[in-house]
Design a protein around this nucleic acid. Structure first.
Length: 875
RNA sequence: GGGCGCUUAGCUCAGUCGGUUCAGAGCGGCUGCCUUACAAGCAGCGGGUCGGCGGUUCGAAUCCGUCAGCGCCCACCA
């Protein structure tokens, strides 16, 4: 078999991905095994893969692949989200670029375009995930707007309505004047801005007195229906019962007293515009104020404004100032910093607006969801997100679930001509129900609600709906796969998605939707900026995969991503990952290149090294398993990285490697192959492709066999003492190498080594290994020190390497004296503790014993150093 | 305004129960090697008063207080 000298990921990755899918290795069906379930956070159907997806899905794949190897029935369900508002915005933009206006289309025509778009671009992202190696069960791919998911959403809406949790009401909502839809509170983000605070005076009716108010939004005075002051404010008690005249429109409005007004802010007088501010609305309700809505839904002024009709709100803000000045109402303008709400989607300023929407009462629903996170029935990694979650859940507000869009699940409410309505799964059903109330109703008279549901109203069902557990609560899939095990997601959707899935989990399955939630960090660029399309600072994941291989990119992403911590990405990371793949490949080439001679006996050093490695591997594997349990995936990877790069390649292979063009004994060979196999299995979840390629070449494999379904290695308990002794041997080897470096002794020149054994620091058993790696001609134990030799120390054992004439006595002497001084100082500090009665009296016995041992060691060392110095000085 | 978190080597980060596995890892840097698997390599070496200051303790990166800087979440001061 010809093994390529270079590993080229592009040559093998697609091949194995096809192999895995062709043999159905990602597919899961319920069986007798323990299930392991992950549902993907469904990316937007029209999205493309970005670095955040790469990180997130790499972690999910690692967890899934490992679970599969642990013998669990692993099922990772993929899918996409219809992303109502985002997709609709994209389709609108696309139509506009084709010269088509949404306003000129019927709902049906528009949806036709949207579905076309979805069919054309939808799922691209799933193809991209395949490049990454994602072992999703593609047969189970779901879409939040496919038939089963849509029906589930409608059923849940009807159910919650019937439970009295969904209601329709006219409320102050966040209005997006660009998308022309209401938004939930979570879809609004606040940005600090430099703006102006305008001081305006209102004349008191029938007097030549004025009150001055302060506002950041002078254009809204056109909708003012009161001026409010604090009832406890002595400055304004005389105004009680009077009216003021709103400037420009000359409308008399009452002066009202309300606790809401802060006496310290501005002038202590507040203009009240109930239609365009949530607090003003509340005040309006308390005082039964008139509500004048002055805006059209796109943010322009309507007829009720009486002025600037048709102008945009921000233009009006500029235009109204000179008008106010002319009217003598402008007192002053101050610079002011405040926070302005923006639509997360369209990036336009949100307009608080009174409108009729559908809401979901959250308080009761949230209770079990809060409790079961706080008591760790659902465990958050890292735990600090519990606090954030708790705060939100404890202050949860009703959820505005209706959107004035077309792309989404249409609200299943059907209105009769008289305003009554029925809820139904289908139009036919609705007709039947409607006839019960109005026997002669015609189909044309029954009108379905025009609005669609918030996207998250479908994704909050995801862990249930992908197994069709809403429609068929007793089906085999949902019973087997639910609850799922781990959810891997970004913290920015903790409220949008995670919290709400937990709510539906308890509401519809009486159990949590997932046991663990792993929050990834945010991928940033080298400057610490969030990667974003606008900044153009995000590399194209597919280009990275093409350049470094999927394995390289996966490893690169993980090497620096602590749980919940942000990661700074740069190209050296996948480079390192790709380098690691190459390292593994080269180790494989070495092993596979050996000639095997079955008649050769196994050398002592090989036998010892393999025994040692088994223990080392066990220790690392155990540690890796612990890391996995704590979701410390980066640490788990680092363990594997060290195991392969340092322990296996750097030490084991160097020891067992036969001399050039010499054959290796059969026993060592087969044992090394076995070890390699274990290492590959341990690496596989991180680097699925290169491990599969090598695993297939390492031994004869039947068609359909895959490392994917091989078993995760098991750790034998390891002998700590043995590992410690081997470390001493390694230190001795390092000591010899140091001597070589220091005295410029070539590697091929054999050296002699003498050992003056102390009570620690030398394991005679490993002499054969020291000989091999140190390239020694002899290793001799002695009873006293060897003159004219370089020395080094491992614990209390001294090693001597005769170096002939290479020694520089002066330099050596200086070094010894330096060490002597250091050790004496150390001894002094130890003695300080031991002579301190409070220490010996209060510290635990074990600690005192340790200090005593330190003292003895230091004294020994000082004696030894003094002798060496004497010997040198004598010369 | 409230809450949470962070600050350890040039960079990214570990550091559990306060004490010999406490000052660590990877990357980078420096030096020397093209030593026959691998220069995507090997060998070796530096590098941090653990953000500042106090306190508790026989003993503090670790516990407490405080100050500074950074980040995140939430919140109706116009």
């Amino acid at each position: 078999m010809e093994i390529p000298s270079k590993y080229n990921p592009a040559d093998v990755e697609d091949k194995w991905y096809q192999y895995w899918t062709a043999h159905g290795l990602f597919h899961s069906e319920p069986d007798g095994r323990e299930p392991y379930t992950v549902v993907i956070p469904p990316p937007n159907v029209t999205g493309v893969l970005h670095m955040g997806h790469m990180l997130n899905n790499t972690i999910q794949d690692i967890l899934t692949r490992r679970a599969r190897m642990l013998g669990k029935n692993a099922c990772w369900v993929p899918g996409t989200d219809h992303a109502s508002i985002a997709t609709e915005a994209k389709v609108v933009a696309k139509l506009r670029s084709d010269g088509i206006s949404k306003a000129n289309l019927t709902r049906e025509q528009f949806l036709e375009h949207a579905w076309d778009w979805t069919r054309n671009y939808g799922g691209v992202i799933l193809t991209q995930l395949k490049k990454l190696g994602a072992s999703c069960d593609w047969q189970r791919t779901c879409f939040t707007m496919d038939e089963a998911r849509s029906q589930s959403v409608i059923m849940v809406f009807i159910d919650l309505y019937n439970k009295g949790l969904i209601y329709r009401g006219k409320r102050m909502v966040n209005w997006d004047p660009a998308a022309l839809t209401a938004l939930s509170d979570e879809e609004v983000f606040y940005r600090e801005e430099q703006s102006k605070l305008y001081y305006l005076r209102y004349r008191i009716e029938g007097e030549e007195q004025y009150v001055t108010i302060a506002t950041t939004r002078p254009e809204t005075i056109l909708g003012d229906t009161a001026v409010a002051v604090n009832p406890n404010d002595p400055r304004f008690t005389h105004l009680k019962g009077k009216k003021v005249i709103v400037p420009l429109v000359n409308r008399p409005v009452p002066i009202i007293m309300d606790d809401y007004v802060e006496m310290e802010f501005g002038t202590g007088c507040l203009k009240v515009t109930p239609a365009h501010d949530e607090n003003d609305y509340e005040i309006g309700l308390r005082h039964n104020l008139e509500i004048i809505d002055i805006f059209n839904d796109n943010g322009t002024m309507n007829a009720d404004a009486t002025m600037f009709i048709g102008d945009d709100r921000f233009d009006v803000r500029k235009k109204i100032i000179p008008e106010l000045e002319r009217a003598g109402s402008l007192v002053k303008i101050e610079d002011y910093t405040n926070k302005v709400g923006y639509s997360e989607r369209t990036n336009t300023v949100i307009e608080p607006r009174l409108s009729t929407q559908w809401f979901l009462k959250m308080t009761e629903l949230a209770k079990p969801a809060l409790e079961n996170v706080m008591n760790d029935n659902i465990t958050f990694y890292p735990a600090r997100f519990k606090n954030i979650y708790r705060h939100w859940m404890e202050n949860i507000r009703d959820w505005c679930i209706s959107r004035q869009l077309w792309w989404g699940h249409r609200i299943p409410v059907y209105y009769l001509p008289d305003g009554r309505f029925v809820l139904a799964q289908t139009r036919e059903e609705a007709m039947t129900l409607a006839r019960e109330q109005m026997p002669d109703i015609t189909d044309a008279q029954l009108r379905q609600d025009d609005d669609v549901l918030d996207t998250w109203f479908s994704s909050w069902l995801w862990p249930i709906s992908v197994f069709d557990g809403i429609r068929f609560p007793d089906n085999d899939d949902i019973k087997y796969y639910y609850p799922t095990n781990d959810l891997v997601t970004a913290p920015d959707i903790i409220f949008f998605w995670v919290a709400r899935m937990i709510i539906t989990g308890y509401e519809y399955r009486h159990n949590y939707p997932f046991k663990n939630v792993y929050f990834t960090g945010i991928v940033r660029d080298e400057l610490g900026r969030k990667m974003s399309k606008q900044l153009g600072n995000s590399p194209d994941p597919l280009e990275l995969i093409a350049k470094y291989g999927a394995d390289g990119v996966r490893v690169g992403m993980l090497l620096c991503s602590p749980v919940g911590g942000d990661l700074r990405y740069n190209d050296s990371l996948p480079q390192q990952g790709a380098g690691f793949a190459t390292k593994i490949w080269n180790a494989f080439r070495l092993v596979k290149g050996w000639q095997v001679d079955a008649t050769l006996p196994q050398p002592e050093h090989s036998r010892l090294a393999i025994e040692w490695f088994r223990h080392k591997f066990g220790a690392i594997l155990e540690q890796t398993n612990v890391h996995f349990e704590k979701f410390r995936i980066s640490d788990a990877l680092m363990g594997v990285y060290i195991a392969v790069k340092d322990e296996f390649s750097g030490w084991l292979l160097e020891i067992v490697k036969p001399e050039y063009q010499h054959p290796i004994d059969g026993k060592t060979y087969s044992e090394v192959i076995g070890i390699f196999d274990s290492l590959l299995r341990m690496m596989h979840p991180f680097m699925p492709f290169v491990t599969e390629e090598i695993w297939q070449l390492l031994d004869e494999r039947a068609d359909g066999q895959s490392i994917m379904t091989a078993t995760w290695p098991t750790a034998r308990c390891c002998d700590e003492a043995l590992l410690a002794q081997f470390d001493d041997a390694r230190e001795a080897v390092s000591g010899i190498r140091n001597v070589r470096t220091k005295y410029n002794i070539a590697n091929k020149d054999k050296l002699q080594l003498f050992v003056l054994q102390g009570d620690k620091g030398y394991a005679p058993d490993y002499g054969s290994i020291i000989c091999k790696l140190g390239n020694l001609s002899a290793l001799t134990r002695v009873e006293k020190e060897i003159p004219d030799a370089a020395t080094f120390l491992v614990k209390s054992t001294t090693f001597f390497v005769p170096t002939g004439n290479f020694i520089d006595a002066e330099e050596e002497l200086e070094k010894l004296r330096k060490e002597l001084a250091y050790t004496q100082g150390f001894l002094k500090s130890v003695m300080g503790k031991l002579n301190n009665e409070r220490f010996t009296a209060n510290a635990p016995e074990a600690v005192v014993t340790v200090e005593r041992a330190k003292k003895a060691d230091a004294e020994n060392r000082i004696r030894s150093l003094e002798e060496q110095i004497r010997a040198l000085v004598k010369d």
